[in-house]
Nucleic acid binder design. Structure first.
Lengths: 170, 170
DNA sequence: GTGCTTGCAAAGACTTTGCAAACTT
DNA sequence: AAGTTTGCAAAGTCTTTGCAAGCAC
């Protein structure tokens, strides 16, 4: 069973449970969500969804994203810009930190397994219960800073590093 | 030497260095920055600044905040809402994580000393150089969830916890 | 059929910016 | 005097919302 069909299944179940309907725009948006490799904006999702069903409107994308987040199919990533990024939840995902290159806007994700423990401890000290958590590191391209600005290409070649795991426990 | 005067000194030096001017609105805003206890919005800063010099305009607040951030007098805290919070840098501050109560919007800060190490390690793996970092934990009020919603009052009484330190190294 | 959905365009919320007048050095 | 800064209001940017027509079930 592919991830796509697993997500479709989950989406349908969720919609049914809430007496919502599986419409053609929603289907196109779900497909678009799988068409994106990494992080995308609402606008990018709209473009791709429109290439699948050109009647999809911006409003529907914005109305569907919260549903996809509730289904745990998509997650929102706010890196402090004036718009948000979204990413599709792949099955093997652990909690991850975002490393954002401020020169080229690339977003890398790196496992940060200690975060679950930290968040829980921090919240408990305040008598709270963890809802969600987030780590973000903003960084510059050391090597490329001197030459032309940090390039997206450079970032792409680092993709093998994306699944590195960093833990504070050694 | 108080923190206020240290900040004023730093502000003046910075302005001079950049051939900028110490004007009355800027002075009022700097004062307002010290009048706030914890986290404040641009709008709240504007109100307080206006109570000191009622001619201060919203535009000037927005234009002055970036300068204060460059001087390291104020820091920006983006908790993913559609507006930003600001906090005055007090001398004893270490790197801190934000714990945001999603019920009452209170923001607590807790030391997270391991973050420097983590950010550096994560960035290095990608060939980047750390610029800034951020940890945020969103949480609910466990105890108060059942009764009336989590109250701001309740948060205030936890203030003694604000300076707790949590480290992953035990 | 019932009532959830959609697209469109207008509205919203916060922040930024153009401009002429006012002010700091 | 020279050049920065200000307040005002308009512009901007992303996101949300009202509404009548259109669909899914």
């Amino acid at each position: 069973m592919t991830e796509n069909s697993r997500h479709l299944q989950r989406f349908q179940d969720f919609l049914t449970k809430k007496s919502l309907r599986l419409t053609s725009p929603r289907r196109a948006i779900l497909e678009a969500v799988h068409g994106h490799e990494s992080h995308y904006t609402a606008e990018e999702l709209l473009s791709l969804a429109r290439s699948i069903d050109d009647s999809v409107s911006r409003a529907t994308v914005y109305r569907t994203l919260p549903i996809l987040q509730e289904c745990d199919i998509v997650r929102e990533i706010d890196v402090g810009k004036d718009f948000k990024y979204y990413a599709t939840n792949r099955s093997e995902d652990n909690f991850q930190a975002q490393v954002v290159c401020v020169d080229c806007d690339n977003i890398f994700e790196i496992d940060a397994p200690f975060m679950d423990w930290y968040a829980k401890t921090a919240a408990e000290r305040l008598g709270l219960e963890v809802d969600s958590q987030r780590i973000q590191v903003n960084a510059h391209c050391t090597r490329l800073r001197t030459g032309q600005t940090c390039e997206h290409k450079a970032a792409k070649t680092s993709e093998s590093l994306l699944h590195s795991t960093i833990s504070t426990h050694n």
